[in-house]
Nucleic acid binder design. Structure first.
Lengths: 343, 343
DNA sequence: GGTGATTTCGAAATCGTTTTCGATTATGAA
DNA sequence: TTCATAATCGAAAACGATTTCGAAATCACC
């Protein structure tokens, strides 16, 4: 094995018989080093293929230049889109991103938070699990003065910056669209009772009904626990038994909507003529399923990018002013009309 | 703003009027510190909520305890499954994972490699872009003695550890299955010409034909460039024009197969009776599409987990023996039979 | 040539932890 | 008591880069 040592400032300094200080200054463009010396340093650095030891720089500057993001799961169209946005923007700003998963589990989420804290990341982006709300480990992030941005799955009880969509309005748009194409009896396969966006989408559903003077019927609302394909299928089955005259379904997310579509297809129930279906989130899947699924486009990538920018603002504010920004950014959603609601 | 300093070894030492050395030793369980002192140290550490500054530890031990993974894209069922496997196993072993994307672009991939090298990660896992083969930046990783594991999209020309599936055998199984259910004229919508697994799957296709004495017809092979849904749709259209009597399609990946299914559905072509279709990879989507898609299950999660374990072996071998392991692990695939090939 | 200003450089401290090695004290045996 | 041994602790160096501060050398100007 070769003794090819990794080059350091010292190696360069020794080769030129000058001090480490001067080498450092030359490389960083300080004004108190002569052009001649600077050039010699640059040449040797180039020759040795020198790159600063970023672990040492991190140590010295007390910044890890790394942020952490905790999400429920990676293998998920929306969350992976968020990750994509975060790491693209982070890379542009010279930050690395550590990804951790909570698996929708509160204990796991707590563990991940503590891991990130102990590893001294510069900031944290989180999308909460369905179980969590104002947990003490979230407050710990605040107490420790660690920059924090919540994204999409937020808690109203935690005082920090947030990147969200207007779930209530988006849900309103979806249900309003169903009503506009003639649906009279619309069911809602909703999410769990705890998460904020599940609540807001339910409220949007209700508001749209109100707006068109359609009486709200709680027996038309089915709450998912795991928010999965199977629940979409099973609840639709149950729904069609309970209310054979239902003519519209608004599902909390595309995955559930696809489950609904599958049941309706299996039963030869005409979509959208007998039952129209609209989902939420605009997963890739929804544009290749048959019939193609109408949905609400939720800009995951953009949300991720925004979240990083906001986190950076938080990090700078904390460093300079010692206090948080606590800004909430609300991004627009779009109603995507496809076959499942095109009568 | 409070002056709540982050506790260090020094804070503890000062509080107890002992040396930093002893505190460090007490916390690390050295034998040359008395039980009494140790307990006092542990108590104070507990009280101050001390956690070691891992940036300092990294600096001291010259290990970042962080690995990097470069993949073509995050928003992708298979690759996100790999990531999931890597980070789960890495977390168990106390490592962090940095994720970077090449976007199937060679220049980007090069940039990402250099970024990871300059940031001094302890090891790198890579799934190559379609453009890359034995690029010089890959050799640079080898030259710099950085542990490397290639996963799934590998290059035979780079000498390092690898985690793969037997693409040729898996493709053979898929096509063999088509033949067994009675297909006589089977088309292959293949991947680009460069990537190894695209080549191997093509070879598996050819071998299966040979094995059943079906003559190979190169006009039945359509090469994708971007390996996307649209190509699956368009090539199937072209295929059905060129060869109306084709009765089986083997697609390089589920995404392409779903494009094929959609075209066939649009044209009211019966699946699988007129044309049977099989994909590759077992994306979630393929089990909810109609008809449900037969495919080859590619164990992304397991591959990711294995890749990390192998990388760890590489890291230890490099540290201790100064040389690479260069082991190749081949994981099993499963033939998943669903509606699209159930005559 | 003398004075002050400017240019150019380097010594040294610092960040927090780990580890080596030596010093000191206590203990035990003779 | 004496000497050897064991038990316990701490000083100091090291990791690599950055930055402050002061020293030295050069220059400009009268």
């Amino acid at each position: 094995m070769k003794e090819s040592k990794v080059p350091t400032l010292k190696s360069i300094a020794e080769k030129l018989n000058i001090s480490v200080t001067t080498v450092s200054k030359a490389l960083k463009g300080y004004s108190d080093v002569s052009p001649v010396t600077r050039q010699k340093v640059l040449d040797i650095a180039e020759e040795l293929n020198y790159t600063p030891n970023s672990i040492a720089v991190n140590f010295r500057t007390k910044q890890s230049k790394t942020i952490g993001i905790i999400i429920p799961e990676v293998v998920h169209h929306f969350f992976s889109s968020i990750i994509n946005g975060v790491i693209e923007e982070a890379e542009r700003q010279n930050y690395f991103v550590i990804i951790l998963q909570s698996n929708e589990n509160k204990e796991m989420e707590k563990k991940q938070v503590e891991l990130l804290i102990s590893k001294r990341v510069d900031g944290i982006i989180m999308s909460l699990s369905n179980q969590s709300n104002d947990e003490d480990y979230l407050k710990k992030i605040i107490d420790r003065n660690i920059p924090l941005v919540l994204i999409d799955k937020i808690s109203k009880l935690i005082d920090c910056s947030k990147v969200i969509i207007d779930d209530k309005k988006a849900a309103f748009d979806a249900v309003n669209h169903l009503i506009n194409i003639g649906c009279k009896k619309i069911a809602h396969i909703r999410g769990p009772l705890n998460p904020q966006n599940s609540i807001d989408r339910f409220l949007g559903y209700k508001t749209a009904l109100d707006h068109h003077n359609i009486p709200f019927d709680s027996s038309l609302v089915y709450p998912c626990k795991r928010v999965c394909y199977e629940e979409g299928y099973d609840f639709t089955k149950q729904l069609m038994n309970d209310h054979p005259d239902v003519d519209g379904i608004f599902a909390i997310t595309d995955l559930v909507a696809v489950g609904a579509l599958t049941y309706l297809n299996d039963q030869q129930i005409k979509i959208p003529n007998q039952v129209a279906v609209i989902g939420f989130s605009n997963w890739f899947m929804s544009s290749v399923i048959s019939p193609k699924l109408s949905t609400i486009d939720q800009p995951g990538f953009k949300m991720g990018a925004q979240a990083f920018l906001l986190l950076k603002e938080e990090m700078e504010s904390m460093r300079n002013a010692g206090k948080r920004v606590c800004k909430t950014i609300t991004l627009n959603t779009d109603l995507i009309i496809r076959e499942s609601t095109s009568k």
